[in-house]
Amino acid sequence: MELQNEDYLILEVENLDVNVLTGIYSEETHLPQPLRISIRARLKMADRYDPETPLRASKNYMDLKHAATAAIPSDRHFTLIEAVAEHIIDTVFLQDDKVDQVEVKIVKLALSERGENIGITMSRRRK
């Protein structure tokens, strides 16, 4: 994520293993593929976080997890994992207008032969 001369808060959820219908080859299009998904959401910060600061001043981490799991339609085929990342980003933006940037990293676990990470990272700012 791009750093700026302003204060911000980043919420992170890393290494969620999710099965998603995705792929371009015939052997990929009928069965869900295992993806490892990580999300970083940059938020506008509150002026201060005191011990009594309510959750509405931040964001629930579980919202990020939801965007990468339950919010992905299980019956929808995504040709590219880039489309999966777009869907997650759109979901996070819809959840909370305090989020001004979202970064999604997706690793296609089925491509790994020796533990390497093969995939994409996509970052979008709110427009």
Results as ranks from 00 to 15, higher is better:
109 L>Y: 03
91 T>L: 00
75 D>Q: 15
113 E>G: 15
123 S>E: 13
116 E>Y: 05
122 M>E: 09
8 Y>F: 10
6 E>R: 14
1 M>W: 12
86 E>H: 15
50 D>A: 10
110 A>H: 14
9 L>H: 09
70 A>P: 00
44 K>V: 10
79 T>W: 05
8 Y>I: 03
118 I>R: 03
107 V>K: 07
109 L>V: 12
93 F>P: 02
68 A>Q: 05
3 L>N: 09
71 A>Y: 05
67 A>C: 13
92 V>T: 05
55 L>S: 06
28 E>P: 12
106 I>Y: 02
1 M>R: 09
4 Q>K: 08
29 T>Y: 00
38 S>W: 01
44 K>W: 01
56 R>F: 07
74 S>F: 12
42 R>S: 03
59 K>F: 11
108 K>G: 07
96 D>L: 06
96 D>N: 11
117 N>E: 14
22 T>F: 01
89 I>T: 04
41 A>Q: 04
56 R>I: 12
92 V>L: 05
37 I>G: 01
49 Y>E: 08
115 G>Q: 10
92 V>N: 05
29 T>V: 11
108 K>L: 01
40 R>G: 05
5 N>A: 14
124 R>M: 02
45 M>P: 13
113 E>D: 15
62 M>K: 14
127 K>Q: 09
23 G>Q: 07
39 I>F: 00
7 D>H: 11
84 V>R: 03
46 A>G: 12
70 A>Y: 04
71 A>E: 06
59 K>C: 04
65 K>L: 06
63 D>K: 06
58 S>C: 13
79 T>C: 01
100 D>F: 15
86 E>D: 09
61 Y>K: 15
76 R>S: 02
113 E>H: 14
127 K>G: 08
